[in-house]
Design a protein around this nucleic acid. Structure first.
Length: 260
DNA sequence: ATTGTGGCCTGCCCGC
DNA sequence: TGCGGGCAGGCCACAA
């Protein structure tokens, strides 16, 4: 699913449309528009505007328009971006591998040709004008020890739940969370606020290095733990059967021997 | 305020 | 072969 790694590749793909002027907004699915927006409102705000830049924080990306409006794009679990017919990612983990125009939930057509399309079979993503960036925590791929200390605070919530909370830390989804905690040797269910300073520093380092590694390998689904994410999976390091449970409301795999 | 839960959405896979 | 239930998880509303 699109975690920050995939969304960053979407943002880079969207860089192709910087400098282009929007000829038409295609919004066939009003439900996909969030924050009270309607097709006519989005059309009025975006048509005839020129894209002057792109940005991303966590799993949210946006297009900067020349009137200062930001067009926010969210991808949920199965959302993909296609620019001029090409998508940086062909098939998402847990998503269908085929294409279907019926899944095009939103699009921009440009004056001199070309288009940007958001395809999302399960409709868990969305489009929003001027998304509230202040609701997002610091970017996970570059998180510092100090930022993570603040993010975890003295919370009694499970450590994994804190990592998944986009207002604490932006960009981590279920797969990066499990892979990172496995690499750090930390129990996903331990209280987030229970880490000492050394633990927090180690976790911040592991977060950054895990995102870097998975980016190099090609996505959030390329972790070592991922191939054992099934009911009879074993720890890739020690061979112990993995534990499968729900933590933070999400299916969680961990090694009971190494992540105590 | 913080934490936990359920529901949204729908394609796909498994077992009957 | 067709069918139905369960599953996947990002995000949000809501409850305690």
């Amino acid at each position: 699913m699109p975690e920050l790694i995939e969304v960053e590749s979407y943002r880079q793909a969207a860089d192709r449309v910087v400098g282009r002027t929007v000829r038409a907004v295609v919004a066939p699915d009003a439900w996909f528009l969030k924050g009270g927006a309607t097709p006519s409102v989005v059309t009025a705000a975006v048509e005839r505007r020129t894209v002057v830049g792109t940005g991303r924080r966590g799993k949210l990306m946006w297009l900067d328009l020349d009137d200062g409006v930001q067009l926010g794009l969210r991808f949920g679990m199965t959302g993909r971006i296609v620019v001029d017919g090409f998508g940086p990612i062909d098939a998402l983990e847990y998503g269908p591998s085929r294409q279907d125009p019926a899944w095009d939930r939103f699009g921009l057509e440009f004056v001199r040709g070309g288009r940007l399309v958001l395809s999302d079979p399960r409709r868990l993503g969305g489009v929003e004008l001027d998304p509230d960036l202040s609701r997002l925590g610091p970017e996970a791929s570059t998180v510092t020890r100090k930022e993570l200390t603040v993010a975890l605070g003295s919370s009694s919530a499970p450590l994994k739940a804190a990592l998944l909370d986009q207002s604490r830390l932006a960009g981590v989804g279920n797969l990066i969370a499990d892979e990172t905690l496995w690499r750090a040797g930390m129990d996903p269910a331990r209280p987030a606020g229970g880490l000492d300073a050394d633990d927090v520093a180690a976790l911040a380092r592991t977060l950054r290095s895990t995102v870097r590694l998975l980016t190099r390998r090609g996505g959030s689904h390329t972790g070592d733990l991922q191939e054992q994410r099934h009911r009879s999976g074993t720890c890739p390091r020690c061979g112990e059967p993995l534990e499968r449970r729900t933590v933070g409301g999400r299916t969680t795999y961990s090694c009971p021997a190494e992540q105590g």
